[in-house]
């Protein structure tokens, strides 16, 4: 069986589990759907309100801001679909001693992490919210974007998702060394990304901006690719994919170091609740 077929088979079984989970009860279903839509909207509302109040923000016109918010919401939606079940919040699994569940499965760790958080039915509501905002912005902008632009849009979107994921794993790896204190580190790091992903960074000083594109790569989640896609800055549309690749590499190295450490220390605590969502 090829790797792709194996991954597809794993995704299928996870999709099945997710479907059963979502449809177990009507009230539960509705709470989750409404909750996800409001949550994703709330994440971009603050900036939207500012853009509305001040008719744009700095170099950004109101509709351009809305496009960036849609892009940011889409990133969140994709992560909700692909990396739920505490895969995105990896420090929880490490800190709670739940990584052992993955280690006794006959598959490479990366495959477990890539497939175990696949929740297409419960995650899609947040994704649809992002798609809705983006579609609205594109219509408002009134520009007929060519196919090439959409391809670049897709590639950048994928890179932004990879960036957020790598960032979570990079910070989450702290839990290998400090399982209790860093148990919520991924959530905090991702929380910061989510809170700030929709803010235009143009007014920042060069030093802080560098920080926002490296240590806390908020800029790559929506601002940097959006300003290039919309022509606000020179269109270096390969920057975000390259940055994502580099961060993924760093995160991979740190995570591997963490795993080597884990092989020596293991987990001295185990928390049953919250396991697998």
């Amino acid at each position: 069986m090829s790797v792709l077929t194996t991954v597809a088979a794993r995704w299928r079984v996870q999709a099945h589990l997710d479907f059963m989970w979502m449809t177990k009860d009507l009230r539960f279903f509705l709470i989750n759907v409404v909750g996800d839509v409001i949550l994703n909207l709330a994440g971009v509302t603050a900036v939207f309100l500012l853009a509305e109040r001040f008719d744009g923000i700095g170099l950004w016109a109101r509709d351009q801001v809305i496009f960036m918010l849609g892009y940011a919401a889409l990133v969140r939606g994709f992560l909700d679909v692909g990396f739920s079940y505490n895969v995105l919040h990896i420090s929880r699994r490490i800190g709670r001693g739940q990584l052992d569940h993955l280690l006794v499965q006959p598959q490479p760790l990366w495959m477990g992490l890539l497939t175990e958080g696949f929740m297409p039915f419960s995650g899609c509501w947040s994704l649809l919210t992002g798609a809705g905002i983006t579609a609205w912005a594109v219509v408002q902008l009134g520009a007929g974007f060519p196919v090439q632009w959409w391809l670049l849009f897709g590639a950048n979107l994928l890179a932004s998702c990879a960036m957020a994921l790598a960032f979570s794993f990079l910070w989450g790896a702290l839990a290998f060394w400090a399982p209790v204190a860093a148990e919520e580190m991924s959530s905090r790091a991702v929380g910061f990304l989510y809170q700030l992903k929709a803010f235009p960074l143009d007014g920042l000083s060069a030093v802080v901006l560098t920080g926002m594109l490296t240590v806390l790569p908020v800029g790559f989640v929506a601002w940097y690719p959006s300003r290039q896609l919309l022509g606000i800055a020179a269109p270096h549309l390969w920057h975000t994919p390259l940055a994502a690749l580099l961060l993924a590499l760093v995160a991979g190295i740190v995570f591997k170091k963490g795993m080597e450490h884990y092989a020596q220390t293991g987990s001295q605590r185990y928390i049953a609740w919250g396991h697998r969502g």
Partner: peptide, 18 residues
């Protein structure tokens, strides 16, 4: 799997363990 019927965990195991 905590929030799933037992049967779902078995089916999951069949796929992951091939």
């Amino acid at each position: 799997w905590w929030d799933q019927p037992v049967a779902a965990s078995f089916e999951w195991k069949r796929v992951v363990w091939e």
